[in-house]
Write a protein that binds this DNA or RNA. Structure first.
Lengths: 210, 210
DNA sequence: GTCTATATACAGATAGAC
DNA sequence: GTCTATCTGTATATAGAC
């Protein structure tokens, strides 16, 4: 790889990094191309040498994220889970939550991008259904083994995904250190995961054993 | 009230109605002022005689909605509920779901408006917490009477609200009649309410009695 | 490839006649 | 109050020098 290409790759990486930071700070929709280039210390025109648009940049960030995520997933679980086991449900939620929080900016950007198309476009539903396809499979497995589900697996999976993704978007990150004076409470990630596990496993009525 | 004011009120109402329709069709963020005025059969400039901006129009729609909603709520339940009763939880969800679906356009617009401010603004969290304050009170009542909750009432309430509002936004309306060839499945409102009731009452593990 | 400067596009908002 | 026509601000995208 020549020197030119190396420098180009460096700029592309700088733009992507700056984009992640800006998306997290100002939100995807509010971020202008110039916000990204300025944060990356580059000129406005340079942006288009690497990405055709803000949306294409987002796709690149998504590809990066999925590249990393496959490292975690390929080695990990594939066999059918029993989501009615507290430990396994918690593990599942913890992985999903961790991915969302580790890639807050990209997740938030994808979410905002989907919302901006409006409710009638169906994009958000596709995103919700697509992001919970694994979960849906596990639920269908449960049903096939005779377990009574609360409802249609697709709907239940989507409901769980909706809860997760909107919470992950709305909750401020649990940064250890500077808790600002914002009205939003800060919950630690394990707290959130434990609460959601209990809620989704046994509901508001609580565990029959408790 | 004079004739001038009547005509003005008619135009304002026409603009609001057109806005509701456009918001539902194209989404709030994608709707331009001219989309609204055109749909209402008025000129662009007339808009500003009645509303200072699209956002102020949205506030007016919100006020209208809350005016109607108070009719339902003031006469209805105020005493503390026992959300661990299947019937009462279902009633509560049915009311919330009904309000969301009856005011789809306004709800969607508020949601989009909040999202557009970005995740760091805290607006979405405020909306989530504010919209579930009644729910939170019921949960705190449960806890005070010795019941074990899945976690902090504020967090549990927000999680439930997140599930409801994002699902209500993403799910296509269950219009009886023209089911288009869209990939999104259509669930009837009672189906959704029943499923969410079961999920939130006893979780994935299911009722101890079943 | 990167820069500065500029062009294009469009939504929001206003001016002034009726 | 409502209309047509226009102005302004701003974000995207391109042109052309280096």
């Amino acid at each position: 790889m020549g020197v030119r290409k190396v420098k180009a790759a460096e700029t592309a990486a700088a733009l992507k990094q700056a984009a992640r930071q800006q998306f997290a700070e100002r939100g995807y929709l509010n971020t202008k191309i110039t916000d990204i280039t300025t944060a990356a210390g580059r000129a406005t025109g340079s942006f288009y040498e690497h990405f055709a648009s803000k949306e294409e940049l987002l796709q690149a960030l998504l590809a990066d994220m999925e590249g990393q995520a496959s490292d975690h997933f390929d080695s990990a679980e594939h066999p059918p889970h029993d989501l009615t086991s507290a430990g396994q449900l918690r593990d599942h939620l913890a992985v999903a939550w961790g991915v969302m929080r580790d890639n807050r900016a990209v997740q938030a950007a994808l979410f905002e991008s989907a919302i901006a198309t409006g409710p009638a476009s169906g994009v958000l539903w596709d995103q919700l259904a697509g992001g919970t396809s694994v979960l849906r499979d596990h639920l269908e497995y449960l049903r096939a083994t005779g377990h009574q589900l609360p409802g249609d697996p697709v709907l239940v999976a989507a409901a769980m995904g909706a809860m997760l993704s909107l919470l992950a978007y709305a909750l401020p990150p649990a940064g250890p250190g500077q808790q600002d004076s914002s009205p939003a409470p800060v919950y630690s990630d394990p707290d959130v995961i434990d609460t959601l596990t209990r809620l989704l496993l046994h509901g508001l009525a609580g565990s029959p054993a408790s």
